[in-house]
């Protein structure tokens, strides 16, 4: 699978196709979200809710063969699409790589412009939670 940098490059390239058209970009983000694997109902607990999001995001992580594998869901389609971007980049990577990841794709795809400040604060909360999981997994590994 692609490493963190390669995965980001691919996302940046895919987003560049829309040439800044916000409607098409949002449509694409929602489409990505709809492709996320189903999130188990029993994992929709208060502990798995990411705080700081306007909409609800559930995030869980497992350590499989030394890699952090994330699962996520959201009650809004756009947020689900956004969290799916993070899963594409970070899920299945080494805990150390996740902790030291430079997620430059956010600026490159103009996250703020498309999603607004409040939502990108929620986005920051998601990243933070993913790194907290990675840190916990690292201690376990």
């Amino acid at each position: 699978m692609a490493n963190i940098k390669e995965a980001q490059e691919e996302i940046i390239e895919n987003f560049s196709m829309f040439d800044g058209d916000m409607e098409m970009t949002i449509g694409y983000i929602m489409e990505l979200g709809s492709k996320l694997p189903e999130f188990p109902e029993e994992l929709k607990t208060d502990e798995n809710i990411v705080k700081g999001c306007q909409s609800k995001v559930w995030l869980s992580a497992d350590l499989i063969d030394g890699k952090v594998v994330y699962k996520a869901d959201s009650n809004t389609a756009i947020t689900k699409g956004l969290v799916s971007l993070l899963l594409t980049i970070l899920s299945g990577q080494d805990p150390d790589d996740i902790l030291s990841a430079d997620l430059y794709f956010k600026e490159k795809i103009g996250m703020n412009r498309f999603i607004g400040t409040q939502r990108s604060n929620g986005f920051a909360a998601m990243i933070k939670q993913m790194q907290i999981y990675a840190l916990a997994m690292k201690a376990k590994a």
């Binding site: 916000m22 409607e23 970009t25 949002i26 929602m30 306007q54 909409s55 009650n75 809004t76 389609a77 756009i78 947020t79 999603i115 607004g116 939502r119």
Partner: peptide, 21 residues
């Protein structure tokens, strides 16, 4: 079946300012 936040974002993409929440 549509969350207000999603609707608000899509309307904004179309130049329409509404409030959601």
């Amino acid at each position: 079946g549509v969350h207000p936040f999603d609707l608000g974002q899509i309307l904004d993409a179309k130049g329409i300012a509404v409030r959601t929440g």
